[in-house]
Design a protein around this nucleic acid. Sequence first.
DNA 1: ATGTCC
Length: 473
Amino acid sequence: MELKRDGLNRYRLPRHGKMRVDAVVYVNEHLLPYLREDKSLEQLMHAACLPGVVEPVIGMPDIHEGFGLPIGGVMAVAPDGVISCGAVGMDINCGVRLIRSDLLARDFDKPLLRRLMERIEDYVPTGVGKKGKHKGLTAHIFEDVAHRGVQAVIEAGFGAPGHLEYIEEEGCLPGADIAAVSREACARGSVQLGTLGGGNHFIEIQEVTDVYDPELAARFGLFRGQLTVMIHTGSRGFGHQICTDYTKRLAAVAPKYGIELPSKGLAAAPIDSREGQDYYKAMACAVNFAFANRQIIMTDVVRAFGDVLGFSAEAIGMRPVYDVAHNIAKWEKHYGRRLLVHRKGATRALCAGHPANPPVYRDTGHPAVVPGSMGTASYVLVGTEKAAETFFSVNHGAGRLLSRTAAEKKITREEFERAMGEVLYNTRNYREVVDEAPLAYKDIEQVVETLVAVGITKKVVRMRPLAVIKGKD
DNA sequence: ATGTCC
């Protein structure tokens, strides 16, 4: 493929064949070779063929092959174009919440961290197929959650109204309608609020080790030596079922609207069609579910801290720094136009002064929370004015390097344990999480530095993991 | 990612 260098760490795939626009990928010399190892470039080209797509389709430095749009992809579409469930992903509103505290990491030795992990696991079900522990309560408010997101769970006693301003979209994407969601999706979702899930999802206790921008860090409530908690999860079986349902439905009706689908995974329909509108309504339900899911899990984590430390949540200053989606489609204004921006494995990162920032972060830009792999560092970034060229988006993590099966074959116990170092983890057998080993992922430092060098983002702080809770049986 | 194959 004729990838052309287009400035520092930027490569352009010029429009050709059925592509309507160019694709642009951000990689440095370390990450560039990975592009040849999977079908992610081909998948970006497919996205560039869809009606209404706006130049360019973007690949982030953590890009890798997915179902439809690659993970690490951004696709903006004009109102006369299409909406695609394959450009949002199976785990709708998979995302990350960073929680601050007034606690110092140095006060937490390994036995104390172990007690915290165990108590968190008592409260938060982890692993595939698990049901929530607040089952009756959350099933009762399920429809309200789908429509109103975090507000509905705050009213049910999970957290405080003040948390809303620290969540993208204030925890509710407008336009959700449960009538567009299948009974099956509702049956799966209604019992899963407050659950972590499996795969790359986690709850991590961290220490802020590096502050790159003291003024911004202070504005975000972060400081060196601080204990933080990060939650990475999404919409569980609810979003998964919605994506499955609508991939079938949109693929079936695409020909009726004269749309030639470039791949099976990129099922799409016109934004203004009945089916496209229905997908948006259903997707918004899953977005709201996932924001609420992270809110419930946060309150359970704070409760665990309170139990173990003997303090109230207020006394230890725990609240969200920010909660960001990295699998979502949203209406946003770019270059003076209203566009439906699909981000799949990409994080919104608005610059200082951007009017779409939440009021608390209006003049700083909101924190863009970027987790590393299990056992490696995570970052808080902020977008710059130059991020306009990525529709104000940055990467969503380190990005997978090996498939789950390849990781299971290649990575030994010794390699896994060496990579984890002193980091505590909850699984007894490394085989349960070897597909999540740091060696199965790209180097988060290379990924972040790629965008920093281009000037799209600035580092605010870096956190190192102390203890990580992953899904297990 | 996922009641990891209805």
